Amino acid sequence: MKHRILAALLASAIAVPAMAADYTIIAPANPGGGWDQTARTMQQVLQDEKISSSVQVQNVPGAGGTIGLAQFASQNKGNANALIVGGYVMVGAILTNNAPVTLKDVTPIARLTGEYEAIVVPASSEIETIDQLVAKLKENPGAVSWAGGSAGGVDHIGVGMLAKAAGVDPTKINYIAYSGGGEALAAILGSQVTAGISGLGEFQSQVEAGTLRLLAVTSPEPIEGIEAPTLKEAGLDVELQNWRMVAAGPDLSAEQKAAITADVEKMAKSAEWQEQLKAKGWSDTFLAGDAFQAQLDKEITATEAVLKDIGLVK
């Protein structure tokens, strides 16, 4: 009899579904930016899809995400309920700031989204094609000014890669870093710079309104609905995507990492996440596990090489 009662108790215990994990997601940037948007979209979908019962988002801005990363790594050893978003900009910031805490100090989970870069000029510019812009760059690199995001970030890297592909010394580029997309856009629209570079989504509405001229994109293939050549089509061997990722705390067990990865993958495959991507103009670049780790290692090595070329890393 006792054995039957014990067996029944064990069976009922096994039948109880595991409790959904509660998560706190660190957005290592100010509210409103790409990382913050990513964290809050994750928050919404994880809760709506009942993957998590409670998700909080905390903003820890500064130094291209490296301040938030250092705080996250030191406070969440072995904590399976903490996540942090990051991406390509963080890779560059770690290298340019010579940050003591790197992505090796956390547990990368998955790449989530990506966006290709766009090169634009104001509609009033005499430059009408990417070939004309490159010709000016070759003639006098310093005379061509570029507006983009933070120094060492994906925009800066994009200009460095373009210069190198065009046979121009990347250390000679005249790159002007702006702290926000709005400031950079104002500089481009006001013809204070020769050209601008940022994520395609940042410029889309102005291109459609006719106030900016789109010269080229950094995708490997033409983008459907975008009337501009790729840099590769223009004879420049440049391909660049600003991707975003999510990582967990350090020192997790294999079981903890697997559980988090399963939750993130379920979120990324959900219909609501796919709708959010479409609404925000983000590409689905989901990649997890060993494949993501290998890709991340490759990106870090390539980024370090470009930043050395530009002169931002010794």
Rank of each mutant, 00 (worst) to 15 (best):
Q192E: 15
Q192R: 15
Q192T: 14
V193H: 05
V193F: 08
V193K: 04
V193S: 06
T194Q: 06
T194K: 08
T194H: 05
T194L: 05
T194F: 00
A195S: 13
A195Y: 02
A195L: 07
A195N: 06
A195R: 05
G196V: 03
G196C: 07
G196H: 02
I197F: 02
I197R: 04
I197C: 09
I197W: 01
I197K: 08
S198C: 12
S198L: 13
S198N: 13
S198F: 14
G199H: 00
L200G: 06
L200H: 01
L200R: 00
G201H: 02
G201T: 07
G201S: 15
G201D: 12
G201Y: 02
G201W: 01
E202R: 00
E202C: 08
F203L: 03
Q204E: 11
Q204V: 07
Q204I: 11
Q204S: 14
S205N: 12
S205A: 15
S205V: 07
S205E: 12
S205I: 01
S205G: 06
S205D: 13
S205L: 08
Q206P: 00
Q206I: 02
Q206S: 13
Q206A: 11
Q206K: 09
Q206E: 11
Q206R: 10
V207C: 12
V207E: 04
V207Y: 02
V207H: 03
V207S: 08
V207R: 03
V207P: 08
V207F: 05
E208G: 04
E208V: 12
E208Y: 01
E208P: 03
E208H: 05
A209Q: 13
A209R: 08
A209T: 08
A209S: 15
G210Y: 07
G210Q: 06
G210T: 10
G210L: 10
G210K: 03
T211M: 04
T211R: 13
T211D: 14
T211C: 05
L212T: 01
L212G: 01
L212M: 03
R213K: 15
R213I: 05
R213G: 02
R213H: 11
R213C: 07
R213M: 06
L214S: 12
L214I: 13
A216V: 10
A216L: 11
A216F: 06
A216P: 00
V217M: 13
V217N: 07
V217H: 06
T218L: 08
T218F: 00
T218M: 10
T218Y: 00
T218Q: 05
T218K: 01
S219T: 12
S219V: 07
S219L: 08
P220L: 07
P220C: 10
P220M: 06
E221D: 15
E221S: 11
E221I: 10
E221G: 05
E221C: 04
P222F: 13
P222E: 11
P222D: 10
I223S: 10
I223T: 14
I223M: 14
E224Q: 15
